[in-house]
């Protein structure tokens, strides 16, 4: 091929020579968002399928989710350039903007988490909450009644919103035609499955009954298996796309980000825990915390690697 020298006389901070849009805050936010999606979907699905929560883990899940979601939103806030204008997210809804969808979804998630949490809480929990609420204990009572009365709709909302949240974390990156590594319709489902498995993994680290543990672990395996397939499809899509997409894929498969991608995302995050889970379930090996920890490491790594690597490859670099 004919050699080309390109001199781009632009030196805007954060844009040149390579885009440095997003640092640690966004991967953290996407990761926590994914976990929250998992914490909403997994317990709700189990309950919808008739398994009443018994272990403390499942009861804690919605409250934990609310805390993690707040941390994630905190990270997102830290990333904003114009922090004092954050309220602007809630003066508009822009249907073409995943960021807009996300900010509204986040707002809807909290009440659902509260209803879900109240509905799942045992007697001890409810008493504790009433004490905590103090003069507002009446409100707790009313909400608890609502959560009990509308149990199925709340569970369904939890599944739908959780899935929406999970998908959104991927779409945030996936709808950027300018960034070849991100511009894939599969990023939504991929981040959803990854989020579900990370949520499930976090549950596995909490106190669960053995039955619950098996159910969650089976769910986790399913999510991971699906994630593996989606990841394969995503990479194949890139590698067989145009020149820009091939360049993008090569940064993951054999380029600058390959070591992190293969070691942390594929091996540690998917391959190893799948094998461990399979061993535990099929061969009845004792449960260890290793597999879920690896899943969480892999889940964060997937986002961190994709966010970082995706900024490296844009149209501007491809003549």
């Amino acid at each position: 091929m004919e050699p080309v020298e390109i001199d781009v006389g632009r030196h805007n901070p954060g844009v040149d020579p390579g885009l440095e849009l997003w640092g640690w805050e966004i991967p953290v936010y996407l990761f926590l968002g994914g976990i929250v999606a998992g914490l909403m979907v997994v317990p709700a699905l189990l309950e919808l399928r008739g398994r009443k929560p018994e272990g403390a883990g499942l009861r804690m899940a919605p409250w934990l989710a609310a805390v993690l979601l707040s941390l994630g939103m905190g990270a997102l806030f830290l990333d904003l350039g114009h922090k004092l204008y954050v309220w602007r997210f809630y003066l508009a809804f822009r249907p073409t903007s995943p960021m807009s969808w996300g900010s509204w979804i986040l707002l809807l998630v909290y009440p659902v988490l509260v209803l879900q949490g109240l509905g799942t809480a045992g007697e001890h929990g409810r008493r504790f909450l009433r004490t905590l609420a103090g003069p507002l204990s009446g409100l707790v009572d009313r909400l608890t009644a609502l959560a009990d009365g509308w149990r199925r709709p709340v569970l369904t909302a939890s599944v739908v919103l959780g899935a929406g949240l999970g998908v959104y974390t991927g779409l945030l990156l996936g709808t950027t035609p300018a960034r070849m590594l991100w511009n894939s319709a599969l990023l939504g489902p991929l981040f959803l499955t990854s989020g579900l498995s990370a949520g499930a993994a976090l549950l596995l680290l909490l106190p669960l009954t053995t039955e619950e543990r098996h159910a969650v672990a089976r769910f986790d395996m399913g999510a991971m298996g699906t994630e593996l397939v989606l990841l394969k499809l995503y990479l194949t899509g890139l590698a067989t796309g145009g020149e820009p997409q091939r360049i993008a894929a090569s940064t993951l498969l054999g380029g600058e980000w390959a070591p992190q991608f293969w070691a942390l995302v594929v091996f540690a995050g998917l391959g190893a825990p799948l094998a461990l889970d399979a061993a535990e379930l099929r061969r009845h090996r004792p449960f260890t915390r290793l597999a879920p920890v690896l899943v969480l490491v892999g889940g964060f790594s997937l986002r961190a690697v994709l966010v970082a690597a995706g900024q490296d490859v844009s149209f501007a670099l491809v003549p």
């Binding site: 249907p95 073409t96 995943p98 969808w101 779409l171 996936g174 709808t175 319709a185 939504g188």
Partner: peptide, 9 residues
Amino acid sequence: LNRRQFLLT
């Protein structure tokens, strides 16, 4: 509003 079809919408 509908200048562009998006995956999402």
